[in-house]
Simulated assay, not measured.
Amino acid sequence: MPFVTFTVRRGLSTADKSLLSEAMLEAQMAAGFHRDDLFHRFLEVDEGDLRVDSRFPDYTTDRTDRFMVVEVIISKGRPTEIAATIAEEAVRLFGERLHLAPQDVLFIFQEVEPSLPRFPAESTSRKVIADA
């Protein structure tokens, strides 16, 4: 279950958020995740709250004010290829649909233990059934 946070500068339209989310979901599906596995949030920050070097690490073109950070939390132990597929496919789709340049997207992947509870209501209902 990927959990995705898009950190963007304030003012991104609802339509663009929808396009980003749909493209990200398609990238997740390309990596083997289910279409219903949709957990995306958008954090909007002011201009001065997202500071980045314009060309690190050796880009030949400056980043723009459309730069965003895409944090993806996935279960620990998944093959590295899953993260690579998500990132590559998302950047391709972001470019096609929103005309975002690759240097305007920074991916951060974090892993969590798959055994940690994620849906307490589901755990509670299983316990109730087991106790019955």
Rank of each mutant, 00 (worst) to 15 (best):
R92N: 13
L93G: 02
M29S: 09
V105G: 03
V8N: 04
V91F: 01
Q110C: 05
I108N: 07
A15V: 14
A90C: 07
E44Y: 12
R35L: 10
L25V: 09
T124G: 07
E111W: 04
D58Y: 12
E44R: 11
D36S: 07
G32V: 03
F33V: 00
V70K: 03
E122A: 15
A87I: 02
S54P: 04
S21I: 00
P114N: 09
H99E: 11
F107K: 03
P57C: 10
E96S: 11
I73G: 08
M24K: 06
L93Q: 02
V128M: 12
S18W: 00
E88Y: 01
A87S: 15
D53I: 07
E88K: 15
D65M: 10
T61N: 01
F109R: 06
S54W: 02
F94L: 05
T85A: 11
T64M: 09
D131F: 13
P57L: 12
P79I: 02
L93C: 03
D49M: 11
A130R: 13
F119V: 13
T14R: 12
V8K: 04
L100P: 05
A30W: 01
M24S: 13
M1E: 01
V45F: 05
F33T: 00
D16S: 14
A90T: 04
F119Q: 12
F42N: 06
R63Y: 07
M68Y: 03
T5L: 12
V52A: 06
D46L: 09
P120T: 06
R97S: 09
